[in-house]
Amino acid sequence: TRTVIEYSPSEGFASYRNGLASYYQGAGLNVEADDILITTGGSEALVFAFMSCLDPGDQVIVPEPFYANYNGFAQMAGVQIVPVTARIEDGFALPPISDFAAKINHKTKAILLCNPGNPTGTVYAPESLDALAQLVRDHDLYLFADEVYREFCYDGAQPKSVLQLPGLEQHVVLVDSVSKRYSMCGARIGAMVTKNAAVRKAAMKFAMARLSPPTLAQIASEAALNTSESYFGQVRDRYVARRDALVEGLRNIPGVTVPNPGGAFYAVCELPIDNADAFCQWMLEHFDLDGDTVMMAPATGFYATPGAGTRQVRIAYVLDLPMIERAVECLRAALGAYPGRRDV
């Protein structure tokens, strides 16, 4: 029993790291408590990984579209993101390995993935990850993986963790978080997981400089490890129903293209419009359907390549089913009224 809200060890409470190791082992991952560094959110875990593994001026290859905050984390570490573009026509599958290889030069030190993906909801095929692993080994790169949506995979998909890729024990750094898994984004608890002792030692210096991850939030996160699998089953069923309603509804709107996301709770769709930034702003400022409208994220913010994604938006299906259906109605009406509509 704790009687004061003291600092935890910089690497996090041992009881929580032991519990988290058991969670990973239950998911088929070979992780021990000593492989885990508890962080202030998954964001800090990735910043620690960048700053522990890379030098200013180094390059990290990232499939785009990607989580926009990766840009800020890279700037903090003084490293450069080099995009490899995934295509909506391919369901935002992992780009061909040859595309990654073409981007590698003497400054390339790492590849960063998000699987399942934000903003696309794509779950990468195991064989694609195996091929990428060979590239990582051949060029002696680090492989950073953001796997915070692991529980949210649909249609029987089983996401393959980078920790399951053979021969990459010294190359892989996993980023994790309680934010999505338990809907605890305000707790700000994440984890950096790696078998590489030198990387852990370097990251501990940054961890000690910020003293400790949040004490109360670690206690809450440790308790969350007892969440039953039935909870996740119910959540997945709910998200699948929302996804299906969204995708079916969008595909019935002329001119709209949307892949069927295999995980997370996002979909990126391409619309018959001139510019997604202008359209999303117009939706909020100038359009309503009997008082309702839809807030979306222009996909341009998820691309590093200038001019990419200009007709795409990200939609998060985090609302209840009737509101998803109503959002599709609003979007259909809006596309009919938008002055910048462009049919291709």
Rank of each mutant, 00 (worst) to 15 (best):
T310M: 03
E270M: 05
T108L: 07
E222S: 09
V175G: 06
L289T: 02
G336N: 09
D99A: 14
Y303R: 05
V235Q: 14
P254H: 03
I273L: 02
Q234D: 11
M323N: 10
L271T: 07
V178I: 12
V178S: 09
V258G: 01
Q312W: 08
T39M: 12
A102W: 14
I219P: 01
P116W: 08
L94W: 05
D343W: 11
A278T: 10
S230H: 11
G78K: 07
A191V: 05
S128M: 04
A191H: 08
G262A: 03
T293A: 11
D34V: 06
L129H: 09
G255W: 04
A21K: 02
G249I: 02
Y70Q: 03
T40F: 00
G156C: 13
L46M: 15
D176G: 02
I253A: 00
Q25D: 10
G307H: 08
P83A: 07
S212C: 13
I36V: 14
V235Y: 05
I324T: 01
N71Y: 05
T257V: 13
T122P: 06
R236M: 03
D130M: 14
F206Y: 15
L284M: 14
R236F: 00
T108C: 04
D155A: 12
T305P: 07
M323A: 10
V318G: 14
G307P: 08
E325F: 08
Q80C: 00
A77N: 00
D155K: 13
P306L: 04
R332C: 06
L289S: 11
V235N: 07
N18I: 14
K201H: 12
Q312C: 11
S8I: 01
A297C: 00
E89L: 07
R87E: 12
K195N: 13
D146M: 06
H286M: 00
L216K: 11
G309T: 04
P298G: 10
T1F: 05
E44Q: 14
F13D: 08
A125Y: 05
S15V: 11
P166L: 12
V60C: 10
L174W: 06
V247W: 02
P56E: 13
A297D: 13
A276M: 03
L29I: 11
L112Q: 12
E222R: 10
R251F: 06
D90H: 15
L319T: 15
A27G: 02
Y16M: 11
G249C: 04
A278Q: 12
G309N: 01
P306N: 05
L289R: 13
R188D: 11
S22W: 07
T3R: 00
M51R: 15
S98H: 10
G307I: 03
V62I: 13
A299K: 01
E11G: 01
I88V: 11
G186D: 07
F48N: 11
